[in-house]
Lab assay of single mutants.
Amino acid sequence: SNREKAKQAFKELLRDKAVPSNASWEQAMKMVVTDPRYSALPKLSEKKQAFNAYKAQRE
């Protein structure tokens, strides 16, 4: 689905920018907000969900 693709793109973005798994949401956003993939997930709640999944995978 498109939403799954968007989630993957967002997680790839976090990986590409080397966002550490112990980063806070605010720290992570400063690192990725300028990338076009930041807008892949329109809802903030979805971004946070993908971010938390990313962190869980990295730990």
Rank of each mutant, 00 (worst) to 15 (best):
S1L: 14
S1Q: 03
S1V: 15
S1D: 06
N2L: 02
N2H: 00
N2S: 09
N2T: 14
N2Y: 00
N2W: 08
R3Y: 03
R3F: 08
R3V: 11
R3I: 14
E4A: 00
E4R: 04
E4I: 13
E4T: 05
E4W: 02
K5W: 03
K5E: 12
K5N: 12
K5C: 11
A6G: 12
A6Y: 03
A6E: 15
A6T: 05
A6M: 03
A6N: 08
K7T: 14
K7W: 13
K7V: 15
K7A: 14
K7R: 10
Q8L: 11
Q8D: 13
Q8G: 07
Q8A: 10
Q8E: 13
Q8C: 06
Q8R: 09
A9Q: 13
A9G: 08
A9N: 08
A9P: 03
A9W: 01
F10C: 02
F10K: 07
K11I: 15
K11M: 15
K11F: 14
K11D: 06
K11E: 13
K11T: 15
E12G: 04
E12Q: 08
E12N: 11
E12F: 01
L13K: 06
L13N: 04
L13F: 01
L13P: 04
L13Q: 08
L14R: 01
L14A: 04
L14F: 01
L14K: 05
L14P: 08
L14Q: 07
L14T: 03
L14S: 06
R15Y: 12
R15D: 09
R15V: 13
R15N: 14
D16L: 02
D16S: 04
D16T: 06
D16K: 01
K17D: 01
K17I: 01
K17Q: 09
K17R: 11
K17S: 06
K17V: 03
K17T: 05
K17M: 13
K17G: 02
A18I: 03
A18G: 15
A18N: 12
A18W: 04
A18C: 13
A18E: 13
V19K: 01
V19A: 02
V19H: 00
V19Y: 00
V19N: 02
P20I: 01
P20A: 04
P20Q: 05
P20R: 02
S21T: 14
S21D: 12
S21I: 13
S21P: 10
S21Q: 13
S21H: 13
S21N: 04
S21V: 14
S21F: 14
N22M: 02
N22T: 13
A23M: 11
A23G: 04
A23Q: 03
S24L: 02
S24T: 15
S24N: 04
S24I: 01
W25A: 09
W25R: 10
W25D: 11
W25K: 09
W25M: 10
E26Y: 02
E26P: 10
E26T: 13
Q27W: 00
Q27I: 07
Q27K: 08
A28N: 05
A28D: 04
A28K: 03
M29I: 09
M29T: 08
M29D: 11
K30P: 10
K30H: 06
K30I: 01
K30D: 05
K30V: 05
K30C: 05
K30Q: 12
M31K: 08
M31C: 05
M31F: 02
M31I: 10
M31N: 06
M31D: 08
V32G: 06
V32I: 15
V32F: 02
V32D: 06
V32P: 05
V33W: 13
V33S: 15
T34E: 13
T34S: 13
T34W: 03
T34D: 14
T34L: 06
D35T: 01
D35F: 00
D35G: 01
P36N: 05
P36W: 01
P36C: 06
P36F: 07
R37I: 09
R37Y: 00
R37H: 01
R37M: 01
R37K: 11
Y38Q: 08
Y38S: 08
Y38H: 05
Y38R: 04
S39Q: 10
S39K: 09
S39L: 07
S39E: 15
S39C: 11
S39F: 08
A40Y: 06
A40F: 14
A40G: 09
L41M: 10
L41D: 05
L41W: 04
L41I: 08
P42S: 11
P42Y: 05
P42T: 12
P42Q: 07
P42K: 11
K43G: 13
K43T: 15
K43I: 01
K43S: 15
K43R: 12
K43A: 13
L44Y: 01
L44E: 15
L44Q: 09
L44R: 06
L44C: 06
S45R: 07
S45L: 03
S45V: 04
S45P: 06
S45I: 04
S45K: 11
E46K: 00
E46G: 01
E46N: 03
E46H: 01
K47A: 04
K47W: 01
K47G: 07
K47V: 01
K48C: 00
K48N: 03
K48S: 06
K48P: 07
K48D: 02
K48E: 07
Q49L: 06
Q49M: 07
Q49F: 02
A50R: 00
A50T: 05
A50M: 12
A50H: 02
N52V: 11
N52L: 13
N52S: 12
N52F: 00
A53Y: 03
A53Q: 15
A53E: 15
Y54H: 00
Y54L: 12
Y54C: 10
Y54K: 01
Y54R: 00
K55V: 11
K55T: 09
K55G: 06
K55P: 06
K55S: 08
A56K: 13
A56Y: 06
A56I: 08
A56S: 13
A56P: 04
A56H: 11
A56N: 10
A56Q: 14
Q57H: 10
Q57N: 10
Q57T: 10
Q57M: 07
Q57I: 03
R58T: 11
R58C: 15
R58P: 13
R58E: 15
E59L: 05
E59Q: 13
E59F: 03
E59S: 05
E59P: 05
